[in-house]
């Protein structure tokens, strides 16, 4: 009996670093093999902190767009994008999407925007992980008849910088203040 307890304790100790290493806000995105197989165009971007650092060094500071991006990513630890475009309307496998949505129901994550257009058959959900009044993660799930996209941005997202690059990448004015509170989030949400 004691041996079992010791074994469980050891297993927990060994597993602890694995849990500790995963930064907050990082989602486990599936590979979406079915989507990748049928997509006419796919964008799969996996940039962890190391690659972000390298990418940031190669951004041209003289280009306003890249300079803003450089500033924005300085506090990020990861950017992950899975985007698939199809030639025809395609029914996405719901299970994969649901596995991502389940992760977004964890404490800390809150839905900022939930937009659904019946006319265009488009759904866009924007989630944000807020920790001590600071945005630590952003997730976007956008599904259109011929396009499916999941974005996960990990790290200390400086909302002021996000505000600064407004319009440069087509980022809309989200009316986000630098230290979002619950009331401020309500101002983004429209019920």
């Amino acid at each position: 009996m004691n041996a079992r307890i010791a074994l469980c304790f050891t297993a927990l100790l060994l597993a602890a670093p694995a849990f500790a290493e995963q930064p907050r806000g990082l989602l486990r995105l599936p590979e979406f093999p079915a989507l990748a197989e049928k997509a006419s165009e796919s964008v799969v971007v996996t940039l962890d902190s190391n690659l972000l650092g390298i990418a940031s060094r190669f951004l041209d500071a003289s280009d306003p767009e890249q300079a803003s991006a450089k500033k924005l990513v300085s506090s990020l630890t990861g950017i992950y994008v899975r985007s698939y475009t199809f030639d025809t309307d395609f029914a996405y496998p719901k299970a994969d999407v649901e596995s991502v949505r389940r992760q977004l129901s964890a404490p800390g994550w809150s839905r900022m925007v939930e937009a659904h257009s019946k006319k265009e058959n488009t759904d866009v959900d924007v989630f944000m992980l807020v920790d001590n009044g600071k945005a630590m993660g952003l997730a976007i799930i956008a599904s259109e008849p011929r396009e499916f996209t999941i974005v996960n941005i990990v790290g200390s997202i400086d909302l002021e910088q996000l505000h600064e690059i407004e319009g440069k990448f087509g980022v809309p004015e989200l009316e986000i203040e630098s230290a979002p509170k619950k009331e401020e989030k309500k101002s983004v949400k429209k019920n």
């Binding site: 190669f58 924005l72 952003l138």
Partner: peptide, 19 residues
């Protein structure tokens, strides 16, 4: 990596635009 980063930011901004 920098090209991927810019592409990722563009995709992100497009989706935020839609929202």
């Amino acid at each position: 990596a920098s090209r991927e980063l810019m592409q990722a930011l563009r995709v992100t901004s497009q989706k935020l635009d839609i929202a």
